[in-house]
Design a protein around this nucleic acid. Structure first.
Lengths: 190, 190
DNA sequence: GTCTATACACGGATAGAC
DNA sequence: GTCTATCCGTGTATAGAC
């Protein structure tokens, strides 16, 4: 079965998002995916670490596409940012504050404990920054400003996710969006 | 020994910061603290969860005091923010990108898995927001603006920590500080 | 070539020795 | 009252049955 692998990747992504890396067991993954235990080592000979690396890259890329699609929907950066943060808030509420960033929890867990996986998360974030920079360049910003704004957008979103999930409130997403908008307007005036 | 408890709390805080909640074992904690295993259940009858709750509150409070002291050092909010983010970057580099927020990793791990600990992290963040709001009020901002700026400050710092630890670079802290400064200046002009 | 049963270490927790 | 030895479950990984 080729799509057994896809089911494992998908189930692992969902569990990592909610429970993190060390908090998710391989047995729980195969149970969720409806796959036999041996399939993990068939498709991922490197075990949990290899599975995690592939999940980080695939779910990281999927989330990048989702956010870029949201940003592309508006020709005005301020509107794009506000609608994107509002959409993130809606998703958060709709999923009981579970579905935020798919790799943030794992990224913090592995940052000082697993060099291979840390590098995988760094690649994903670097891709997000590059994609965001492209958007801001198309909105008319010079490349250095565009990169700073892209990073500010991502860090604000990630930090807001943290506070929102802890507090079970979307207030932080509103405040964070305001800061990004202020940074965009400040860059527009130069 | 009364300070056995303090050593356990301190060791747990250090390990949680680097490895998270599920990634840190009780045996590792007592080894690091130089304490016998039974001490954990002597001082924390509720086991790992109770220990974690106390660590979240104590290290969360300690970090709040540290950041507030940094913010208090400057009468100008923009200078205070820039020096605080710069200090965070220095600490990050000095510790090999290990010492960032003491509770962020744990907060994400427990947000959807342990209601008791989620509430503890929410309390800590709420305290940070209140303390930050006080600072901005003293800098002359109206309370609603002050609260929004405090949240923007915290979310930017947290999100930047995530990207910095993953990328092993302090670039994100610079960009995040810029966004907070822009938000402060925008609020000053109203 | 797929999957099940098992190995072995480590997780949290506890009971009882001192 | 402090600490050690142990319990049972779960963790990852593997070997071998089919």
């Amino acid at each position: 079965m080729a799509d057994t692998k896809a089911r494992i990747l998908h189930a692992t992504g969902e569990l990592f998002r909610r429970q993190g890396y060390t908090g998710t067991g391989l047995k729980q993954i195969v149970a969720e995916a409806g796959a036999p235990f041996g399939s993990i080592y068939h498709f991922f000979p490197g075990g949990k670490q290899q599975l995690a690396a592939e999940v980080i890259r695939s779910s990281g890329r999927a989330y990048q596409d989702l956010v870029v699609a949201l940003l592309d929907a508006s020709p005005d950066p301020v509107v794009a940012i506000e609608t994107s943060f509002a959409a993130a808030a809606e998703t958060l509420v709709a999923t009981g504050y579970a579905d935020a960033c798919p790799i943030a929890t794992v990224a913090l867990e592995v940052a000082s404990t697993d060099e291979t996986l840390r590098a995988a998360t760094a690649e994903v974030f670097a891709g997000w920054v590059d994609a965001g920079t492209d958007r801001f360049v198309r909105w008319g910003f010079a490349t250095p400003d565009a990169r700073r704004l892209a990073i500010a957008l991502i860090t604000s979103l990630e930090g807001a996710f943290l506070l929102c999930r802890a507090a079970r409130s979307t207030e932080a997403l509103d405040a964070a969006a305001g800061a990004v908008v202020a940074a965009v307007r400040a860059a527009q005036q130069t």
